[in-house]
Nucleic acid binder design. Structure first.
Length: 746
DNA sequence: TCTCTCACTTC
DNA sequence: TGAAGTGAGAG
């Protein structure tokens, strides 16, 4: 208590608001009724987490803890604890930031996305490939930011890989516990973030629901980005055969504990969408990964890995087979189809040609029917392809607003859209086909009455799924799934099909206003996030924060949010029906997934918070600024999170991309292919090798192809195919040991 | 479909 | 050197 209490500083901060303690040294003044919390009731089982410097700390803490334990009203405490900041919150220089995020390795992502990216999930966790990397700009150099990413369900469907394409196979399984990954360098200054590529390669995907890593935070039910409990950790739990969409978040805050009350800027890159699998389904994806992931080098056709040996063996076998077949049939015509298939393989796996090769494969393989070649052709030529070509991953370049373009590039996920449209932290509501390819989706959350909160014309919902399912057959193979749907349609779908219609939180969610009054749970001893939690050193331990109606503390951080939250609460019930399905669902999911150490989502009745909010927001419904405690300007300019600081959509960069990505085959892949072809031409030896390896490496594909071909080829072909397969198996069997002798022999 | 082991790679 | 990340393939 070295610093004197500044008289007249009426900015009291609720001691239980975790984000206060780290920020401000507080003095406790006994005997004063805190006017700010007229009817505040402390949570019955919450442990007070308050860092109070000075001699008064303990007595105050004792009181607070006692109150918390017994659940008695704050106001009934004997000597009242009046907490004040020791220093006035001088409006720090808050430089307006305008974060822009650029997805790194976009081309790579595009290649994968075009084919319907799959990400393997394992019990122990598997990294994402391509790795999710972004480059940030437009941050306030001095301000601290926490960067996170999470992965949300892209829709409500379960998929299956059938006939070389992903198809909807029913409704999604129950959502897995939500996880988010905080970049280990968080928090760091904007300058630091901007100086490097921010990579999330350490994030792992798992299907192991029993994974205990991480700790849990509870977010307000009306938080625009996340609602309910989220656990933080390095592993994200996903459902196999479900589609997911990674999201990147920038939060201007210097402590993890502030997350639930901070403004989020969310960036979404459609090209990073993927389907989680326990085993690769699509050979093209497998090959792409092998060709691009350093750790999979051993499976490439070139180099000294086993693939090398294998391809050689296969090549030999192939020659034998071909010779025999020619002799048997006396003509190459019949076998042409298979020959073609083989040649496809040979080309497809050329290390250098990777993507191109796979592309060619489809085109060259009639056996796959319309499936690949056709599908891909459609993909690349279709509107989506065009959009993709125009996509720019830099938000600043986001054409997002460009409604005129085929693809509404920018996805601005708004918390509160005019239409009451909101984005939940869960299922990704797909927007129209156009928006689907937007380079980056930005969403600001936690803002007050969603000034800037807007979202792209909804991403599809369940209904869209159905549509998608319908459209699939005719659509492109791999990733066709993404269907488009109008907002209205989507909304209708949501309302009608939402698994959790009528959820009570609808109002708040619908508006996506930020209600600061929710509890925050922390798992004691589970802090593994390092720096981000530095402020917790004070021994916050198990922490339970409550929010007062005025919750000035919180509002101090983001008063507009507060007001909106209150307003949202006030609206409760009125608009449950208006809550988009995905939001409702999300909320439900949140509640269903009690990750709190306390065993429940909320340790105390939700009404507790609601009441507080209501009290504080009497008229706040629409005017944040009118409320004395909510008024940002009045309260704390310093903490103002510019509600208008939404990432600015950028001009449509389609032109650039169009150039970079010529329609269809002219894309990067083709360029690559051309290069590869050139390389091959220059090196006959490598060609031979590649061919063989290709065939071998794609044995599985071959098998499937053969099967599908059988009907068309007739008995002879079938027999031939079987023979080929036998050879393949033989080769595989020999591969392990005999390769030397094998390779040595002519 | 999923899980596990294996050989191979990177770092 | 060894831990950790790969896909293949068997079960």
């Amino acid at each position: 208590m070295r610093d004197p209490v500044i008289p007249g500083t009426s900015m009291a901060y609720h001691p239980f608001l975790p984000h206060r303690a780290p920020d401000f040294a507080m003095s406790a003044v006994l005997g004063h009724q805190p006017p700010f919390f007229p009817a505040l009731t402390l949570p019955p089982n919450g442990a007070a987490a308050l860092s109070l410097p000075g001699a008064l700390a303990k007595p105050i803490m004792d009181q607070l803890v006692g109150a918390a334990e017994t659940g008695i009203p704050f106001s009934s405490l004997g000597p009242q604890a009046h907490l004040r900041p020791l220093k006035t919150m001088e409006p720090e220089e808050e430089v307006e930031d305008d974060p822009k995020v650029h997805l790194e390795a976009k081309e790579l992502w595009d290649q994968f996305h075009k084919r319907g990216t799959e990400m393997v999930i394992t019990k122990s966790g598997r990294r994402m490939f391509p790795p999710f990397k972004v480059r940030c700009s437009g941050l306030d150099k001095k301000a601290k930011y926490i960067l996170l990413m999470d992965i949300i369900a892209a829709d409500d469907c379960r998929y299956k890989f059938h006939n070389s394409r992903w198809m909807v196979a029913g409704k999604a399984d129950p959502e897995m516990p939500k996880r988010m990954y905080i970049h280990p360098d968080s928090p760091a200054t904007g300058e630091q973030w901007m100086s490097k590529v921010v990579t999330f390669h350490k994030l792992k995907l798992t299907n192991n629901i029993s994974d205990k890593h991480g700790f849990t935070l509870a977010f307000p039910s009306d938080h625009a980005t996340w609602q309910g409990n989220y656990s933080f950790g390095t592993q994200t739990i996903l459902n196999s055969m479900h589609k997911y969409q990674p999201r990147f978040h920038i939060v201007r805050a210097n402590d993890i504990l502030k997350l639930p009350y901070s403004t989020f800027r969310t960036y979404l890159f459609p090209e990073t969408e993927f389907i989680a699998v326990t085993a690769y389904q699509n050979d093209k994806i497998t090959q792409l990964k092998i060709d691009n992931n350093p750790f999979a080098k051993g499976f490439r056709d070139t180099g000294n890995g086993r693939r090398e040996k294998r391809k050689q063996l296969t090549l030999q076998s192939m020659r034998v087979y071909e010779d025999r077949h020619k002799k048997d049939t006396g003509t190459s015509d019949e076998s042409s189809s298979e020959q073609a298939a083989f040649s496809c393989f040979a080309q497809s796996s050329s290390p250098a040609v990777s993507t191109v090769g796979t592309s060619n494969l489809k085109d060259l393989c009639p056996s796959e029917g319309e499936s690949d070649a056709e599908a891909e052709s459609k993909e690349e030529h279709g509107p989506e392809a065009c959009d993709a070509a125009k996509i720019s991953t830099t938000t600043s370049e986001e054409p997002g607003r460009d409604k005129g373009s085929p693809a509404g590039k920018a996805h601005l996920f708004a918390a509160a859209e005019p239409g009451g449209r909101a984005r939940d932290g869960g299922r990704l509501d797909k927007a129209s086909p156009d928006s689907r390819h937007s380079p980056a989706t930005i969403s600001s959350s936690t803002r007050g009455l969603g000034a800037e909160e807007r979202r792209s014309p909804g991403r599809e919902g369940p209904a869209a799924k159905a549509e998608e399912a319908r459209a699939l057959p005719a659509k492109e193979a791999a990733f066709a799934p993404l269907t488009v749907q109008t907002d209205a349609a989507a909304a209708a779908a949501h309302l009608g099909q939402g698994p959790l219609p009528g959820l009570g939180f609808a109002p708040g969610l619908a508006g996506q206003q930020f209600f600061n009054g929710h509890p925050l749970f922390l798992h004691p001893g589970q802090f593994a996030m390092g720096g981000a939690f530095s402020s917790m050193a004070a021994g916050m331990g198990p922490l339970l924060a409550t929010v007062s109606g005025a919750s000035t503390g919180v509002s101090g951080l983001d008063s507009t949010a507060m007001a909106s939250a209150a307003a949202a609460q006030g609206l409760s019930g009125a608009s449950a029906a208006t809550l988009p399905f995905h939001l409702q669902q999300h909320v439900l999911a949140s509640q269903g997934l009690a990750m709190s150490p306390f065993g429940s989502l909320f340790p105390y009745p939700y009404t507790y918070m609601a009441a507080a909010a209501a009290a504080s927001s009497a008229a706040a419904s629409s005017s944040v600024h009118r409320h004395p405690f909510l008024n940002l300007n009045t309260m704390r300019p310093r903490l103002r999170y510019s509600p208008y600081s939404i990432p600015v959509p950028v001009p449509d960069g389609s032109g650039l991309l169009a150039t970079a990505l010529p329609p269809m085959a002219a894309g990067p892949l083709d360029a690559k292919a051309a290069a590869a072809a050139a390389a091959l031409a220059a090196s006959p030896a490598s060609v031979a090798v590649d061919s063989g390896s290709e065939l071998n490496s794609r044995s599985s594909t071959l098998s499937s192809s053969s099967v599908s071909l059988s009907p068309k080829l007739g008995p002879e072909k079938e027999a031939a195919t079987s023979e080929l397969q036998s050879i393949q198996r033989l080769v595989s069997g020999l591969e392990a040991k005999p390769d030397r002798s094998r390779s040595a022999s002519p």
